[in-house]
Design a protein around this nucleic acid. Structure first.
Lengths: 170, 170
DNA sequence: CGACTAAGTTCGTTCGTTGAACCCACCATC
DNA sequence: GATGGTGGGTTCAACGAACGAACTTAGTCG
């Protein structure tokens, strides 16, 4: 009677939920985006139980979101780095950020942290648009359809090649 | 020793995680976007344990994402409808959709369902951009900053006024 | 009367999370 | 060579949450 798994459902939302639904996982990803790479660093910053952090990091490695890299020998010490797949997940975090910043604070209030563009220094407010037209896209403006022919599928090559992960903080 | 709550953390990602991290919740939201409004309809479609569905729907009502509306008396029967806040959550589902469609299928493969624009009938591929500049926005292109002055905060009025919820299906 | 429907509730079993304590390899210091 | 520190975990008991099946309630239909 273990928790129902969604990772082989035909719907992308279900498969994403299977990952995100692991309590703590989006926050662990956030920490990695903030540039924290070490076990103890993340454990202390989030105050997550260490056994849970072990389980989450192992799953993220299995999923190909992060890789475990030894940064020294004797004694062996590891750190965790985001892969391309893990970096791509940042879009989901940005959407979560925007929605919660808009709706999860009392009226007239908001979070004390915000997002600024590294390039321009201006505040950034993420929204979802269609990649081709640039038009605002919501669940109201779309409908379900058969997928396009598989050849046109723009799936990025799911290599685990190491990505540059500059810190999000200043 | 209950599950750690994130709903009063100062980070929007944490607050969103508190909701999403409830197993089944994003799928329940998906069903509502698909136009399913009745308890049994959702329970059968998702094969979710009924006690869990009860708990999730109650929480979503408490959060102001949905409202419970009687659609008949004698006997009283209810349905659940998305509020503005619930509709706004669609952006998170779209981001999850895009990420999982790109990364959670074996190489060269993809989901059998896709998204089309209701307006143009063309396939839609959601991406995250900055609302002001239209520039592609990722966790790599932003950095953390102090929030802008609260007056500029573009928080929508969190009314629970009923929203039109046309079915996403054809 | 009995069958059916929508929307739940109840319950015993199993799974997952929590927090605190413990472990181990190695290094530095006294 | 005992002591303490550090990084990266593992172990364990307690308890809350999820599972699936059965049951309930209020009303309609034939």
């Amino acid at each position: 009677m273990r928790r129902t798994r969604f990772d082989d459902w035909p719907c992308p939302i279900a498969r994403a939920t299977d990952l995100i639904g692991d309590w703590w996982t989006p926050l662990v990803m956030r920490e990695l985006f903030y540039g924290r790479r070490r076990f103890d660093e993340i454990a202390e910053s989030l105050q997550v139980p260490r056994a849970v952090l072990t389980a989450r990091l192992n799953r993220l490695v299995d999923e190909g979101m992060i890789t475990k890299v030894a940064y020294q020998e004797r004694p062996v010490r590891h750190e965790y780095r985001l892969t391309e797949k893990g970096l791509a997940f940042g879009d989901v975090l940005l959407a979560m950020w925007r929605w919660a910043a808009d709706w999860q604070w009392p009226e007239g209030d908001g979070p004390t942290v915000g997002l600024k563009s590294k390039a321009t220094g201006e505040y950034v407010d993420p929204v979802v648009v269609d990649e081709h037209t640039g038009e605002r896209t919501t669940m109201r403006t779309v409908r379900l359809a058969r997928a396009r022919a598989t050849a046109a599928e723009p799936t990025p090559t799911p290599t685990l090649r190491q990505a540059e992960v500059p810190s999000t903080t200043e």
